[in-house]
Every structure is written in structure tokens, then in C-alpha cells.
Amino acid sequence: MEAIKKSIKYQFIESKKFILGFWSTVIVVDIFFYILNDLSSVNNSINFNIGFSLGNTEGIDSLSIVGVNLMIIFVALLVYNYERNYESFPLSLSFSMTRKDYFLSFLIDNIVISFIFASIQGVLLKIDPSIVKLVGKEPLYDFINFNLKTDNVLFIIFTLFILFLTFTCVFNLLASLNYKFGYKLWVVIIGINIIISTFNIKTFDKILLSIGNTIATRFGIFEIVVILASVVALYSLNYFVTIKTDIKRKTI
């Protein structure tokens, strides 16, 4: 128990820096874009939307600055999972952690990170329309998974949490496999891709489509159960990869 506590503490120390660094940068950039949009609406000759902008049914472009964060968050989660697998894993094992303790602590860290990111982004999204209106633009409310006007902040945070955890778990597995198998993983992925496109395998397209449909929708009980079951399955697979992985002699 003592060992797992130390391992969790170590993961949280690392995450704290990542969370603070990421969100302080993102919020500053968001503020910068609010100012840019404000300036663009004052001067009619350069009136344009800078951010996540969609045309609505009335033909007016609606805007969300904070919506852009979603793309950045997914990239950040990918980088975070790769960095951890290539840094924390060898360091933890070098300093006498078990693979099991490392995995469990990283899993807890994944959940915490997803929750913190969902909470911050959820609150920012809820505030975003008011600021967009203030800078003289039409706010974007509909985000497929939720609606900023009609949904409460808890539902938005919950939906984002499920989304972030799903992506985190996929990125984590990808990073673990990449650490264990190196370039061979990409050879296999490219190989499978070639086979699918050469033989035009429809089943694969159907699977991808159904995954897309499950994620890009307003979550009901069915979607949540399917997604969480997939997350558990992917983490279980990741566990078996992690306990069979040794430290590489040298990485990054």
C-alpha cells in the first residue's frame, strides 16, 4: 500500500506541472483571441471570427473561442500519455516500483487528469457564450455532445470527462504498445491499413462508423455503458502490455 501511495504521489507531482503549464497557456491564448475578436468587431473593415466558428441556420456565423481548446486538449492528452510512458515508466521501474503499482497509479492519474480537464473546460465553455456576446459576436451553443444553452455545467463536465477518459485510455494504450514494440507497432498499423484499403473491407468501415456515432452524440445510458465498457477493456489490455514490458536501454 505504501508503494502505491508513493507511486500515485509521484504521478501527481508530474501531472500538477502539466496541468498548470497547459491551462495557464491555454487560458492566456483564449483571452488573447477574445481581444482579437473584440478588435475585429469594432473595426468593421476587418470583421471576422477567430476561433471555432460555424454558420447557423440563419446564416449568421456563431463563434466559440473555448471550443478550440477541445482540439488542443486531445493533442495534449496524446503528448502527456506518450511522455509518461517514455519517462515515468522507466524511472518508476528504475526506482524499484512494480509494473502493477506503476500501472495503477497511472490509471488513477489518467482519471484525475480527465476529470480536472473536463471541469476546467466545462466551466470555460459555460462562460464562453457570455464573453462572445460581450465582444459583439454570435455564440456557438451546440457542440453535438451537449448544448451550452440548455445543459447544466455538471452534464457538460460529465460528458467531457467521458470523452477525455476515452481518448486518454486509447492514447495510453498506444503509447504503451509503442514503448514495448517500437517501430514494429507502426509497421503493423500501416500493414493493417494497407490490407483494409486494398481489399476494401466494409466491416472495418462499419466499426469505425459505429465508434464515431457512439462518441459524436449526446450521451445516453447506452452510450455511457458502451464507452465505459470499452475503456475498461482497453485498460485491461494495457495492463497486460505493461506487466510484460521491460525498461528499454535508452529512449528519447
Binding site: E2, K6, S7, K9, Y10, I13, Y86, E87, S88, F89, P90, L91, S92, L93, S94, F95, S96, M97, I247, K248, R249, K250, T251, I252
Partner: peptide, 27 residues
Amino acid sequence: AIVRESGFGIEDIKVKKILKAAKTLYK
């Protein structure tokens, strides 16, 4: 505790960070 001739399995990292990890993880 093991001190490996090949290091810690990672190169691109500050020494301070390695020591901090060791401090957190060793009983």
C-alpha cells in the same frame, strides 16, 4: 535499489527531475 550502468531508460530529462523522482519513490 539498483544503479544501472545504462542509466534510467531515459536520456532527455533534467538531473533534478531524476533526483526528485528517486526522492518520491524510495522509502
